[in-house]
Each structure stands twice: as C-alpha cells, then as structure tokens.
Write a protein that binds this DNA or RNA. Structure first.
Length: 422
RNA sequence: GGAGGGGUCGCAUAGAGGCCUAGUGCGGGCGCCUGCUAAGCGCUUAUCCCUGUUAUGGGGAUCGUGGGUUCGAAUCCCACCCCCUCCGCCA
C-alpha cells in the first residue's frame, strides 16, 4: 500500500512512478475521493461530539426532555447515513490505492520491459562439453528420476514426480541451503502454514492483483501459499516491534503453488515452470535506513548458493517496468543451464520498503521513543529448488548420461553420482 | 462435529445500560527520598483517524470481529472468529 500522503502531497511522484512502470493510476479520482471522505469524517465526528454531550447530560438528570431525545434520534440517523457514505468512499478509494504498486527506487534503471534490465555482474564460466549437452527433461527421464507422466496422471500437466536419487537430491539441496543460511548467514528457520487466510495474502499484497494465480480453498477461504513471503509477512501483522529486536531475518522452506495462468504455453517442458515447487525463502524486517544495504547482503546470500555449487550465475538489476508489484528495487539471480543454453531465474531479491509493512501494519517503536514507524521488508529466494535441480542436471551431466553430484551435497545425498538404473 | 465456559489497556484482573472520559495490581518510564541496593512516595504509561496549529490544542474511534436495539452499549440482542474443558473422531 502506498502512503496516502503521496496522493495528498506528492501526486507528481506517483505520476512519475506510473510513467516509469508503464502504467496509469487513477490519481485525480483518488484525490477527490480522499477529500470527500475527510470532510465526511469531520461531519460525522462533529455530530458524534454533539450527541455525546447531550447524552452525557441526559444521563445526569432524572428529567428527560422529550424534544432533546427526538433531536438526538435525528442526529443518530444522520450519522448512520454519513457513515455509510464514508464507508463507500473509503472502499472506492481503497480499490484505487490497492492497485497502485510500490514506487520504484531512484536507482532502478528505467525501462518498459525485461530487455532494459541491467546485468550487474557475471560470475563463473559456462562449463565446456565434449558432447552436445542435453536438456534436463531428457536427462531426468532417462535416469528415471523425473516422472512427468505420473504427475499428469495424479494431478494435471505441470505436475511431476521425483523418484529415487532425484528425490534424495532435492531433499539434500533443500537441507543444505537451509543450513547455509541458518549457520553462515544468520537467518532463523521457520516452518510455516502452507495455507493462509485472506488477511495474510492481502497484507503481502498478493491480493488483489495475484488472486488469479493462487489456489484457493472455498470452504475455509484459505489460499495455498504462492511463496513463503506471504506467511512471513503476516507473522507480524498489526504488531509493533521493539527497535532493539531489528533486524529480524528468517528463512523457510515451503512448497509454492501457482496457477501460472499468465504463462500458458510458456516453458511447458521440464520442471522450470510448474504448479507446485519448493523454495527456500529468505526474508528480513529492517529499519528503513538500512534496507538498501540489507538488499545487497540478501543478494550475496543468494549468490553464495551458486558459488558453492560451482554453477555460473549472473545478477540483473530489474528495470522499473519489470519490478514486482510490492518491490521498489530488485535484483534477479540467474543460473546458467548448459542443456537449454539459457539463464534460469533462481532468485528475485527485492526491497519492498514500507509497502508491505504499511499494508500489514507492521511497525517498530524507535528506541528514542515517539510514534511507531513502518519498517522495511525484503525478500529473496535462496533459492528456487526445481531450477537449481535443472542447473545441476544440465551442468553436471556426463557424456555417458550420468550426473555427478556437486561436492557439497554428497554428505547429504550419500552418493556422488546418478546413473541410469542406479 | 456435540456440550459447556470464556475473549476488557504490555500482563493480570474489576466492571452487568449513564458515577467507565474503562478502575486496580504488576511490568515499563520520569522524579523525590536515600551511604549503595531494596522499599516507600509522587507523576506517567496504547493505537488509529479528523481538524489544526506548532499549544503539554480541540474532536472522534477502538473492551475478539461485524451488524442491531437505545438519546446513550464493555454492559442488552443477532451472526461470525478465536481460546479453554469434556465427549466423539483421528496421523
């Protein structure tokens, strides 16, 4: 949620933000609704003050003048009418405000689409092969570790089954990434609900604009989490945190469910884009003045995974048109996949500034005292599991069709190679 | 799922139409007292909104949530949510 003060005092900032993102917001309408709403509130408050006075007097005397009671009855019904006006104005205003994304950071490159993203750095060399490297879906099927047909049989397309060493490899990847962030990067591990209520997804700003992409349980009005970002944001909804407790850093492994409605027909082969995937997510609650610095550290934490796995990667800074709804500044981390010869987005690290905390009412009390302030939230994958598996399979594949397990994972897998029939 | 009980200020509790503009205790803050500490004493102690000015201003809202009754609701009525106890079911 953007700051209503921007509507009131700096609509120019929002207009500029809209231009940078290539969107248009109904700012003038919002300004008008806000003005009408405030004057309605003033009117309501004045009437209530009057009624409170009179009622208090009536309470003190045994003599109850009928005409005063009549008058207050009229005031009461006037208040009711104004209240419903106010409610309607607030709803209309909200529906505009909820549609306005976060304001891009001044440092984000300006551009309409992903072609304007900027490569910040590239680390590692693509491995060279003495043979034609194959895509992961061929490798996975041949080794008998990814079973696409069973996924379709059990569910529908874009679901899959991991078998044998494939499943073990995934478990090792998850466990190792969690340990890395907990032990070396100072995050606290969380085990979270995989279904969350409406308030929670509203707070993380997946509602309303992401609604079509989430699986929803009608009976209990719960949403399957599209990312751990949603429940973690909700952890401190409507709470005031002591400044001395900040920053809070969390990491959690959850499945993520997405309908992928907007990607119909894209990436239909393999496990790159599926309805259910696992992810290790990093998340921070920080003081506003430190969020830029924390974003840089967050990216480093994600990159560390690539480095240790010895998989080439690059970091992109997203341009304004490619930024997510809640993000003001984002970096994507991409791993190189030799088989498909493409860069795979394995992490998107974002500084959401006070956008989500405003929406979720997450504040902190300054040590120096004074009013509570909205804190800043950041999130980033650390990393998306299926795409890491893709990168491992495609970059560690051997001429004989086997796949070597990255060294760091071997203590967890208990094997150093996956070969056909093994 | 059934039957009971309950949700009040950070915590604990009082409150049962107007004396609640929510009391008291604890905890927190400031001060006094004081060899030090403790005790004692005094003051203070939430959030949001409107207005406004920079005054330690005025007003409104918030007693689980949302409706209703009433001149007036923490208090009465309705619905929902959550917690506890027992029963049933169950990994």
């Amino acid at each position: 949620m953007i700051d209503i003060d921007l509507i009131r005092e700096r609509p120019d900032i929002l207009r500029e933000s809209g231009e940078k993102r290539g969107q248009e917001f109904r700012i003038d309408e919002a300004i008008d609704l806000d003005r009408r709403r405030r004057s309605t509130i003033t009117e309501i408050d004045n009437l209530r003050a009057k009624r409170n006075d009179v009622s208090r007097e009536l309470g003190k005397t045994s003599d109850k003048p009928q005409e005063l009671i009549e008058e207050m009855r009229a005031v009461g019904s006037k208040i009711k009418i104004l209240e419903s006006d106010e409610k309607r104005l607030a709803e209309n205003l909200d529906s505009i405000l909820l549609d306005i994304p976060n304001v891009p950071s001044d440092t984000s490159p300006v551009g309409q689409d992903e072609s304007k993203n900027v490569v910040v750095r590239t680390i590692g060399e693509a491995p060279s092969f003495s043979f034609e490297p194959r895509p992961h879906w061929e490798i996975g099927e041949e080794l008998g570790i990814i079973d696409f047909q069973s996924g379709v049989k059990l569910s529908q397309s874009r679901f899959y089954v991991l078998k044998g060493k494939g499943a073990t490899l995934q478990r090792a990847v998850i466990s190792w990434m969690l340990d890395l962030h907990v032990k070396n990067h100072n995050y606290v591990e969380l085990y979270l609900p995989f279904m969350v209520n409406r308030e929670t997804v509203k707070g993380s700003s997946h509602l309303p604009h992401f609604e079509e992409n989430m699986y929803h349980d009608e009976e209990d009005d719960l949403f399957m989490v599209p990312t751990a970002e949603a429940p973690i944001t909700g952890l401190f909804r409507d709470e005031i945190i002591d400044e001395s407790d900040l920053p809070l850093r969390y990491v959690s492994h959850t499945p993520c469910w997405r309908r992928e409605k907007f990607s119909a027909g894209r990436d239909t082969r393999g496990i790159k884009r599926v309805h259910q995937f696992d992810k290790v997510e990093m998340y921070k609650f920080v003081k506003p003045e430190s969020s830029n610095e924390e974003l840089e550290k967050l990216v480093k934490d994600a990159e560390r995974v690539c480095e240790i796995l010895k998989i080439p990667h690059r970091v992109l800074e997203l341009c304004t048109g490619d930024l997510g709804f809640a993000a003001s500044k984002s970096y994507d981390v991409e791993m190189w996949a030799s088989g498909t010869s493409e860069w795979l987005e394995v992490s998107s690290c974002s500084n959401c500034t006070d956008f989500q905390s405003r929406r979720s009412a997450i504040r902190y009390r300054p040590e120096s005292g004074g009013r509570p302030r909205f804190l800043h939230t950041l999130n980033g994958s650390g990393l998306a599991v299926p795409r890491v598996l893709i990168a491992i399979l495609e970059n560690y594949q051997q001429e004989d069709g086997s796949v070597v397990v990255p060294e760091v994972l071997r203590p967890l897998t208990g094997f150093d190679k996956i070969s056909a029939g093994s």
